[in-house]
Amino acid sequence: MIQSVKDQIRREMSGAALPLIAFSMALNLSVGQITGALKIPVYLDSLGTVLSAVLLGPWAAVVAGCLSNVLAAALGNPTMMFFLPPMIAIGVFTGIVARAGWFRKSSLCILGGVIQGLLAAGLSAPISAHLFAGTTMGGADFLVVFFRSHGYSIFESVLFQGLLMDPVDKVITYLVVFSLTRNLPGRLVTRFPGASHLSTSGE
């Protein structure tokens, strides 16, 4: 069991995987620049993690996700360090559903995005509630205030806000990655171990 996990990690972290993981991290941290410039009210800050999960696998995605947050902290946003658990969940869940072939169909991607969103909301709510009392100065704070002013507890309010917003964010993330992997040049896709689970791999 341990040996097979080790083999799996080695496979996901060899050769072309390292630059892809690094690129995914950079994508996680830079995509906000585009959403910000276009004023789209979503984060998509797990885009790179999902891309790594699909092309490489769950372990590589966990590495990409966690290191993204560490790097974000190093670049001046230490609060990102607290959100490692949802990032890990995103990596593992996406890696598993990608293995199961969910990224071959857009309908399955939407379903995956919704489940992923609910999972992420459930995991970040306790962190947000406990450490930030639901205040992060993000755009979604008004929802938290709205729920709280209607008598819900901090945890409930943060959770409701997450359950409303995260599935949308993750569905868009999944769909972006879905369309990206369909358009990747064949020779490039074959460089990654996750290729065989995509419809582009020429199986």
């Binding site: 991290m25 994508l27 290191l67 560490v70 790097l71």
Partner: peptide
């Protein structure tokens, strides 16, 4: 792992160029 260190250094490199 050495690989992690490589990834971090590569990521900072890409982060310089992506924006």
């Amino acid at each position: 792992s050495k690989k992690i260190v490589t990834i971090i250094l590569l990521a900072t490199f890409y982060l310089d160029q992506l924006p």
